[in-house]
Design a protein around this nucleic acid. Structure first.
Lengths: 290, 290
DNA sequence: CACGATATCTGACTAAAGTCAGGTAATGCT
DNA sequence: AGCATTACCTGACTTTAGTCAGATATCGTG
């Protein structure tokens, strides 16, 4: 009862019955669970049928029948894929959207009631983020995104908030307007976001300059995702992006108030160099040749 | 993607697939999930068939058939209940114990691999405890137990550890030998443990004295279970136990370094009284007449 | 001891999920 | 153009889960 494995297993049991309860309430809409899951997958933007099949782990015959039953109910329509007529894509009809919305309401309501029952909501959410990140760590996707996208802006605002907490002298939030966004778009640079499911949990920017090198900026990993080696993965992905852009020299600056960062750079082929800019915040400078 | 409800739902998705993976690996032993679950429930000590049926939420007809199939496999035996021949109790045969052990290994292995993959194991476990307590809060059972039982001793050791952290002057652990255990057994007193599934998450002792009152001691609630009103439930349960023991006056002492405790007492009918003992640690004293 | 309640079992179902062996059409590659 | 591959569909099937209406035996109570 006290050892780590028992604690994990207690968690499993608690969560199994909660998950079962949600499934059960899905049945309330008079449709088998399999069909409901397919409808929801399509509603969440998985239009490609093969993708849905993969995601839900269904046999192609079973998948086909579930699609047919949803079609007969008038909830979805299927079309041939525009570039490959073997593949099919599904989309919700008007009625399907209504039905999908009803499932969404069920899911949202149960999530809300879980939060409402609990007076420590923020602690509970933090715990959930941590666990979700740990469970899906094999499925963390690094995606190049626009630095002005919602996902990127979320990461950046979290990043600046954390700098504010970590730096003794605080941090000037006006800097977070991000004048560098232009330099972090292809072909000058790149911006990579780490997504766990739908939640952004880390980012890194590659900022092109006119001085013969590119800078790595704004490396951030959500607290709930630390200890998973995500920082390293993000760095590797940016270096790869830099190579495809023909960049051969990288620089970055950081602050000694962020010791994890310095440690990461030192162990992955970066070498410390003298100050190369006049930013007030950084006090450590690194360089790496690709 | 950033709002609380989305975070809960991301957690749900992550956990659903983890749970599904465990179910799937259970299937690897060539037995339908239903039968495997019954076998495991019996292995975990739920010998009474009605109890298993309740726990797993099965129809009695289905339950009956699953038992039959396990019997035919030679994994369990059933007997009439000793005090009530309508009821049946099941027990594992030698072969059933082996099979149960194999399922246990699967569960343990997946729990271990989850922990091993994660460098923040302690944070992960704390998060799991918190969530498990929140999800099973309706199923927290308060049980009278011997103050020397494993469960009680676990609670007490956590309690003393916390006192050590909270008190500026530290706390003398030698006191945790618990010389009062005798006075916390019926008919002199009582000791109540709050169990969430198999994990003790809180306790309270009622210590009989020869001075015309009984004392309430060692009220503790695990950090992962705070905010659920468990302290209040424990106090109510002890007061109820005191009534059944014919006790009419209760006293307790506490320390102002534990403000939640003082707050709880003041709002539940206790009144502050002058010091009534010479313990070095407490500096606040309360009394309540039943 | 009669009688209603309780615990389990049996038989006869239905629905849902999953499997598997072809079949059709489009595609990619030589 | 020929041919293997891919993506999906269809038909025929099995297994699992779940439901429901009795049947049987036992228990608690008056």
């Amino acid at each position: 009862m006290l050892d780590p494995v028992s604690r994990v297993r207690r968690f499993n049991r608690a969560v199994t019955s909660a998950v079962g309860a949600l499934d059960h309430s899905f049945l309330g809409r008079g449709r088998p669970l399999g069909a409901a899951r397919v409808l929801n997958a399509i509603g969440h933007g998985r239009s490609d049928i093969g993708e849905v099949r993969d995601y839900l782990g269904l046999d192609s015959g079973l998948m086909s029948r579930l699609l047919r039953s949803l079609e007969e109910e008038g909830l979805i329509e299927t079309h041939a894929h525009e570039n490959d007529a073997r593949r099919r894509v599904a989309s919700l009809t008007r009625a399907g959207q209504r039905e999908f919305a009803a499932y969404e309401r069920i899911s949202n309501t149960q999530a809300e009631s879980l939060l409402a029952r609990n007076s420590q909501a923020e602690a509970l959410l933090a715990a959930m983020d941590l666990i979700a990140s740990a469970l899906t760590r094999d499925r963390i996707a690094l995606t190049e995104m626009d630095p002005r996208s919602d996902e990127a802006r979320y990461c950046l605002s979290e990043y600046y908030a954390e700098l504010g907490r970590r730096f003794k002298q605080g941090f000037d939030v006006s800097l977070s307007r991000d004048p560098d966004a232009e330099d972090m778009r292809r072909p000058r640079g790149s911006f990579i976001v780490a997504m766990s499911d739908t939640l952004p949990i880390g980012c890194v920017g590659l900022k092109g300059t006119d001085h013969g090198y590119a800078e790595i900026k704004r490396l951030w990993v959500a607290p709930s995702a630390r200890g998973l080696g995500l920082g390293k993965r993000l760095m590797e992905a940016t270096e790869e992006a830099a190579r495809t852009l023909g960049i051969t020299l990288l620089r970055l600056d950081t602050n000694s108030a962020l010791p994890e960062a310095g440690q990461l750079y030192r162990t992955t082929g970066w070498r410390e160099i003298p100050r190369f800019n006049d930013d007030p915040y950084p006090d450590l400078f690194f360089e790496k040749r690709l």
